[in-house]
Design a protein around this nucleic acid. Structure first.
Lengths: 339, 339
DNA sequence: TTGTATGCGTTATCAA
DNA sequence: TTGATAACGCATACAA
């Protein structure tokens, strides 16, 4: 494959000049510039980004490690990240941690070796030594969606506490008293926070916190189904089940359907996370929507700023309640908030 | 950041020896080997893949350009590709063409400059000059999911003709005669093939081909909805609507629901492409499932083989019909084929 | 078994 | 404005 040298020879100039017109890093007379460009076109020259990166110590590439690529939330997030990165002239290398610390570390290592300019990480449960080293080593790192306690890393995430509180209020207004929550893994910041917010909201709205209404899931569909089964088997089952993420909502939905129960007549269902096709369910699912696009875009900008040497703070965006029809809402038009 | 040189100095050996233990490319005595490894650990040395790639002319990275990252089919495909690539020791850089030739070309260029070892491409409609050049230049390239006519490129794709034929037979068995099809873009091989298969299947089952039952969509949800609207407005609307991909099925579903029509009592619906949550719809959607996992994995293997210099042929896998309940099927258990 | 030295394709420094 | 050349970090041919 043709290199600068070939271009230089064909254009009758030095490699330095070729490099200059390619990066327009310095003034070049129009005639030489034209000759170089002509040579580039004729040879079908394609700059070697590898060599350039070695020389410049920058790859214009960022790494993105997500929790679970089968989770539509992360897919959407990846899309947003990719969009913003492209706009800023960066490529994205995606790694799927599959919620496993070892696989997360595999990608951290790989991406670091690949010398990505920065890393966007949705950290799995534990703080692995590798992540700790990375932080200590001052690698340009930004946490996305989730946090790790005790680590000084800028984080871009959504806070759903307010939305959850709103949801509980909404359910209470609809006359429900017995509300159950299927929570995510306590090891994940998102898991803990949502559960805590739910419990706090119950208190705020004068509802009792029943231990048997707090199910521990793991953000996977199967756990949602199992949790729903236990809740429905209770002597006094809940009136509404709130799932801590979209996958568990799906699992719960399966269990409810499998038992031939009707939503919301027999039991209501709401989900943290909103997905495009939730509107296609019958009835459409009441849910809490995270600002996924903003999350993705902001995180990229924060990371790029860090790469540029600025120090950036964390950003917390708000999730919002989307009222639909799965909790016994009167059959009005969708999307409006509760009274 | 520490380099081989630092490791060599600390271990009291030459850089060549360090390189040798790192790649265990040649015999090294156990003691020296241990010293090197110790030095590596102490310095937290991380090989620079950029430099290595420059030297070895290989990046152990493949590019994947998909049609539309918002289409769950491609998401799932990307996941499969990533899985297989990781297993084989490769990283994947994903580009989202958004079905736009210009954006496809942007990624082709970027990935080529990044010197990926090979490229997996779900080609958009037209043959762009860049793609033609790439083929002519002998770049390791494999088409995935779709083909481009007149280009000698190994392709890994699914053939749905048989499944579509089976679907039409199934519908006819259920007593339906008036079947409509919402087709994808004629510029895409997948668009053309599915429509042709549907028309052929009608003939084979002795059903008339009505022009007004053949709607032209573009694989996007909006076109599915608009097409469904036109079909339902017909003086004699179809008994079943078959959508050429999952996104258009969604759009059609929206339109049907918006009109307060019941599925399958008022109109049946089936989709090319099967998604996990189709089972959660009410009624669960009858669909044609592509072997997405196999598609992704096979394409990676084919590409890697090409990279290794072997010449590989195309592979065509079969899609299969998944009977559920959205076309007036008797309420039996799901997943079984038609009689 | 180990070390020395060269080059991969660029960019950037320094002279001209 | 342009050219010659060193350096980026590594792998490898060749010598020892």
């Amino acid at each position: 494959m043709a290199g600068v040298k070939d271009v230089a020879r064909l254009a009758g100039v030095s490699v330095a000049t070729v490099s200059r017109v390619l990066n327009d890093s310095a003034a070049v007379t129009e005639p030489t510039r034209a000759r170089v460009l002509a040579a580039v076109a004729e040879l079908g020259y394609r700059p070697n980004a590898v060599a350039r990166s070695l020389r410049t110590d920058a790859t214009r590439t960022i790494g993105l490690i997500i929790g679970d690529i089968l989770n539509p939330f992360f897919t959407e997030l990846a899309r947003a990240v990719e969009d913003e990165a492209r706009t800023l002239g960066y490529s994205v290398v995606i790694g799927n941690a599959d919620e496993r610390p070892d696989r997360q570390d595999h990608y951290v290592r790989t991406l670091l070796e690949q010398r990505v300019d920065g890393l966007l990480l949705c950290p799995t449960a534990e703080i692995t030594p590798l992540v700790r080293d990375m932080v200590a080593g001052g690698e340009p790192l930004v946490f996305l969606d989730r946090t790790l306690p005790g680590l000084e890393v800028p984080t871009v995430r959504a806070d759903g506490a307010e939305a959850i509180n709103e949801l509980v209020g909404h359910l209470r207004t609809l006359g429900h008293r017995r509300l159950a929550f299927i929570s995510g893994p306590a090891l994940l910041s998102t898991g803990r926070e949502r559960t805590a917010a739910f419990v706090a909201a119950l208190g705020e709205h004068g509802l009792a916190v029943r231990e048997d209404y707090l199910e521990a899931g793991d953000f996977q569909a199967a756990s949602g189904r199992a949790s729903a089964a236990r809740l429905l088997d209770l002597g006094e089952p809940p009136e509404v089940i709130v799932a801590g993420d979209n996958l568990m909502a799906l699992g719960a939905l399966d269990e409810i359907r499998a038992r031939g129960l009707r939503i919301p007549a027999d039991v209501g269902l709401a989900s943290y996370d909103d997905l495009p096709w939730f509107t296609h369910l019958d009835p459409p699912l009441t849910a809490i929507a995270q600002p996924v696009q903003a999350l993705g875009r902001r995180s990229v900008r924060a990371l790029i700023e860090r790469v540029a040497g600025q120090d950036v703070g964390s950003v917390v965006l708000s999730a919002r309640l989307v009222v639909r029809r799965s909790c016994g809402e009167p059959p009005f038009k969708e999307g409006s908030g509760p009274a």
